[in-house]
Write a protein that binds this DNA or RNA. Structure first.
Lengths: 124, 124
DNA sequence: TTTTTTAGTTGACAAATGTAAATGAAAATG
DNA sequence: CATTTTCATTTACATTTGTCAACTAAAAAA
């Protein structure tokens, strides 16, 4: 499959929108949601490319098209996260978290909560 | 400046290599380090583009060129990390860390160590 | 059922990216 | 010094990406 290449920026924007909703979305709704200056034309072309890459699939309801994600946000996010990790943090999640902490992105409380999550998971 | 656009994959590869060393590096050394199949030609073109973007600068030592990063890894990494955060984790560092924890990327010990770092920093 | 709207499909094109060969100039060799 | 080897700089070209406008077909309206 093609599912191991990163998406170009514009197509990713669309995926991010599709991932927000469970079901399929109408072309025009997607356009409205995105609310970047694209024309319908532009959106359609990008959607077409995403279909080719098999990132999404479409169903036609009469004359209207609807699209929904085939590749899950979960899996794509995981790939992107791992990519960031390996490129900039020597693959160490701990380094990344440390950096976030130093950047004021994390509080003691956050850490405590996550430690609890972890404990709960281990207990399982 | 141009410093707010992401680099194309190939150029990033070069930056990652340059960031590994403090000083300037010879073209041929870079090529050797990268050790992907590029020809010298290819590398040079990419280096040229990076110079244009002002991501790196070059000095010539006789007939040889050396390059070194102008944009710091630190700053680029921060940008990329924030990008990931906002795209896939609603901007919440905590969500990202939770995801890492669930993916077995983090141990209790890691968290404890980071909590200590944070404490030390706050004490300052 | 003709006309007008709409939504979808194609064809186009410029800019960016990946890759490399051709060209030029300086340095090492014979 | 003439020749060969090394680098670096240019030019080239196929793909990919970003953006549309033109063209089609179907539905709604007149």
């Amino acid at each position: 499959m093609n599912e191991d290449k990163r998406l170009p920026e514009a197509e990713l924007e669309i995926m991010l929108e599709l991932w927000k909703h469970e079901g399929a979305q109408r072309t025009s709704d997607i356009l409205a949601q995105l609310d970047n200056g694209w024309t319908l034309s532009t959106l359609k072309v990008l959607l077409g490319r995403l279909v080719e890459r098999e990132y999404i699939e479409c169903t036609r309801d009469g004359r209207l098209m609807s699209y929904r994600a085939k590749v899950s946000e979960e899996s794509y996010r995981r790939r992107e996260t791992n990519g960031l990790l390996s490129k900039y943090y020597k693959g160490s999640a701990k380094s990344l978290v440390a950096a976030l902490a130093m950047d004021d992105g994390l509080t003691q409380k956050d850490l405590a909560e996550i430690a609890n999550m972890l404990k709960a998971k281990e207990a399982k």
